[in-house]
Design a protein around this nucleic acid. Structure first.
Length: 206
DNA sequence: CTCTAGATGTTCT
DNA sequence: GAACATCTAGAGA
């Protein structure tokens, strides 16, 4: 599979504030079956009452309950009526923060990734996991993966040590309507799989 | 490359 | 009802 020599990140790795974990995740490998992706862009989301952009800002709900669970688990949510996005939970149970996985580069399983996009426009290689919803499609992540432990050696989805990135930059988060000034988006400078920055735009529905 | 608009279901107010 | 941690297609430069 190509990632056989890598071991999962320890649970302690995630028992830190999300804005410390997020840059350290760059260069790491997320693996699900034959597909593995090298993370190139992440965003941190903070604690209830402190970060208005976080899903946990208003406290525990059925949707965000996984974010209040143990660190190193996968929080998958459905948005815009058609997309899934994946996060890794940070800090100990009860606190509620995490890191959104925004983009990556396909390391193994490109054929499988392309087969998952049969109903979408074909993409050039660098776009296959460029953007959080496309990353989720590439790795085949959906509702059924919400809550999975990624630090377990025999888990279905695993976050592997890989090679920590150098040349990390940070800036404002993408597409958030509040807390947009907090520079908690992190990316590998110069990597072409990093998604283009998009400020928040209010949608008007007819 | 840029810009614009439309699709679509869940969650929370 | 409004907002939503987005993506795609199409037109234009």
């Amino acid at each position: 599979m190509g990632d056989g020599s890598l071991t999962p990140l320890g649970r302690d790795f995630f028992d830190r504030p999300a804005h410390e974990v997020a840059p350290d995740l760059l260069g790491r490998i997320l693996s699900h079956g034959p597909v593995s992706v090298r993370l190139t862009e992440t965003e941190a989301y903070g604690l209830p009452g402190e970060d208005p952009a976080s899903h946990t800002f208003r406290g525990l709900t059925p949707r965000n309950s996984v974010m209040f669970g143990p660190p190193g688990h996968l929080y998958v949510y459905f948005t815009y009526g058609m997309h899934f996005c994946a996060n890794l939970v940070c800090l100990r149970p009860g606190l509620g923060s995490g890191v959104l996985l925004r983009a990556g580069e396909i390391v193994t399983g490109e054929t499988m990734v392309r087969s998952r996009r049969e109903n979408a426009r074909p993409l050039v290689f660098r776009d296959l996991a460029r953007g959080p919803a496309r990353l989720a499609v590439a790795l085949g992540l959906g509702r059924e993966h919400n809550g999975l432990d990624c630090c377990s050696g025999d888990g279905i989805v695993r976050i592997l040590e890989g090679e920590p990135a150098t040349g990390v930059k940070s800036g404002p988060r993408t597409g958030v309507s509040t807390g947009a000034e907090t520079p908690w988006r992190f990316w590998i400078d110069g990597d072409r799989t990093v998604s283009p920055y998009k400020p928040h735009v209010r949608r008007i529905r007819t």
